[in-house]
Amino acid sequence: MLLALFITMSKPYKSKTEVDNIQVSSQRMLKDKLQVINIGLQKFADDLASREVEVVQVDWKPPARGNVRLANLLAMMSDY
């Protein structure tokens, strides 16, 4: 906490409102409990599960039987 004190003292501060006016991204990722959908390597899901993080493994196969062009068309036409 010494560090914080150091910063407070050494740096010209901006008012709180000024900081709050900056468009801030959703804080959800850092605040909410992490719950993961793992699309790809099973090991990543296993590692998360071993730490008791909630994770759903997708049984992923190349979409459109591996046709990249069709897969990209689908991505443009799909909500998710």
Binding site: K61, P62, P63, A64, R65, L70, A71, L74, M77, S78
Partner: peptide
Amino acid sequence: IRLVVETG
């Protein structure tokens, strides 16, 4: 049709 093609 989107889901059929995506999932195979």
